[in-house]
């Protein structure tokens, strides 16, 4: 699925992450990470972003993370919120067990 709109979620406060999910003029998921710990946790952050994009069936997007030391569960929550906002849909709770 290609995006038509941009979705933003999160803040620049400590322990949070601001996630921007926007249309990608090229193809694929382009992940851009700005984080003090990207050397240590960049791969995990990318995995989380990819998992959320798969969850939403988004195939082409630019995903920017401005990370302030967020836990993985916060990154996931912010990515899901940004994805919902970009797609203009509510979260599918029925899929959560």
């Amino acid at each position: 699925m290609r995006l038509e709109n941009t979705g933003i979620a999160g803040t620049l406060e400590s322990s949070d992450v601001m996630v921007t999910v926007s249309p990608n003029p090229s193809s694929g998921i382009d992940i851009q990470i700005d984080s003090a710990v990207s050397a240590q946790y960049g791969d995990e952050m990318r995995e989380t972003v990819q998992a959320v994009m798969r969850e939403f069936d988004i195939t082409d997007a630019v995903v920017q993370l401005q990370d302030k030391g967020a836990l993985d569960c916060v990154i996931r929550a912010r990515c899901e919120t940004a994805a919902c906002r970009a797609l203009g849909v509510g979260f599918n709770w029925k899929g959560e067990k």
Binding site: L71, C73, R76, A77, R78
Partner: peptide, 15 residues
């Protein structure tokens, strides 16, 4: 409200 729901859900489930 949408962001808070997801944040609370994941924080309680995972942390």
């Amino acid at each position: 409200k949408d962001a808070a729901r997801l944040l609370i859900y994941h924080m309680i489930r995972d942390h």
